[in-house]
């Protein structure tokens, strides 16, 4: 159900790590829990983000929810398309619904994230936060 080539947080974000950069978004589980997403607030290119700290906000019709950075670093790309079409986060969370690309300042942090098997169990168990 969740892409195998991604790493996951307990708070239901993913990071796809490719050569020092991490493409990040929220997981299908988080998107499903939130329902129809109507607003996404993302940092500007160049902003610094810290692993475990909020980097943005997603809002569904009923709920407001922080998104937490899976890894630390500098934001080098932002998916501006979500401003006009936030519902893509529901329809394709792990693909076109990506949110930011982080240039990692401490690539070792990625090792602390969950693999797909651990995340699947975490989500199936109700997933705690988000």
């Amino acid at each position: 159900m969740y892409p195998k080539d991604m790493k996951y947080t307990e708070t239901h974000e993913y990071a796809k790590i490719e050569g020092g950069k991490a493409t990040c978004g929220i997981t299908a589980y988080a998107a499903e829990q939130l329902g129809d997403i109507v607003f996404v607030e993302l940092p500007a290119v160049g902003a610094a983000v810290t692993a475990g700290k909020p980097f943005g906000v997603v809002e569904s019709v009923k709920a407001v929810s922080d998104c937490y950075a899976p890894v630390s670093g500098k934001v080098v790309k932002v998916n501006d398309k979500l401003n006009d079409d936030p519902v893509v986060v529901n329809s394709d969370p792990h693909g076109a619904g990506w949110m930011i690309v982080i240039e990692m300042s401490n690539p070792g942090e990625a090792d602390k994230l969950m693999g797909v098997d651990a995340y699947e169990k975490h989500a199936a168990a109700g997933g705690g936060h988000h």
């Binding site: 329902g35 129809d36 109507v38 569904s60 019709v61 009923k62 519902v87």
Partner: peptide, 9 residues
Amino acid sequence: SVQFAGILE
């Protein structure tokens, strides 16, 4: 139920 098919739909 807060929703069935989804609030927007």
